[in-house]
Design a protein around this nucleic acid. Structure first.
Lengths: 135, 135
DNA sequence: CCGTATCCGGCTTGATACTG
DNA sequence: CAGTATCAAGCCGGATACGG
């Protein structure tokens, strides 16, 4: 997931590229992908791409997420600027989450990957079966 | 990461949607994303999108991957049909990895996400700083 | 050169119980 | 309704050593 993969200089004399920009701080792709590849992140982005939802709604839409992970994942997405959190001082209080422009701009390419996954799931499952068969 | 997020039926009488297609076997997106979101998967796909490489070359291109994870990640990618593994009976033996058509078709949308990450890393870092500042 | 085996520490996640 | 705190379990990934 590095931004720039260390390409070996064809005739490099250095014994080792030692191209240490792979840590999360310096490699944007690993840094960002690390977040959105969390177990629940993409799922929640998909949900909020539709329209804003409240905490409890999201909880019901994703029955097998724990309250803990829902809170945590939403806060991480908010932290990175993908979603907006708005508290309504109703009684009892409610909190609504919605996508930011940044979140939408991410979701645009991300949804293409999701689409690919839906369209090619069978192909991958077939590949897996073939792989097992060879063992 | 589910294929189809359980949308609450507006006037549903059921106390709970109980829409359990979120397990990895049935949810394509979570199933596939789970693989490519491994710590090294995207990085290796990027490398092999360029051209085929041998094991040792990849190892040097990604200095901080362990031999264990390189072998394992490559095998997982091969298992899902994204890359091809070819052994050459040279002396000493060498193994070359290359992308399959399926792998290329995945990399196409995936590279757009990577591109997004490169272009928007600063925006995300800024968002993080603002988030911290509010605490 | 390429791959496997073993051990093991840490992060991530889930379960549960509790507050404003 | 939303969120926090705490604790324990499981998986992932790293180090190291060995084998074909």
């Amino acid at each position: 997931m590095s931004a720039t993969i260390s390409r070996l200089k064809p005739t490099a004399s250095a014994p080792r590229p030692d191209f240490r920009n792979l840590d999360f701080g310096n490699c944007p792709v690993r840094d960002l992908l690390n977040q959105i590849s969390g177990k629940w992140s993409t799922l929640l982005l998909q949900a909020l791409a539709d329209r804003p939802y409240r905490f409890g709604e999201l909880r019901r839409m994703v029955p097998d997420i724990s309250q803990r992970m829902l809170t945590q994942t939403l806060r991480d997405l908010q932290r990175d600027g993908y979603i907006h959190r708005e508290v309504f001082a109703t009684k009892p209080p409610s909190v609504e989450y919605s996508m930011t422009p940044l979140g939408r701009s991410l979701y645009s390419p991300l949804s293409e990957v999701i689409k690919w996954a839906l369209e090619n799931h069978e192909a991958v499952k077939t590949a897996r079966q073939h792989f097992e068969a060879e063992a």
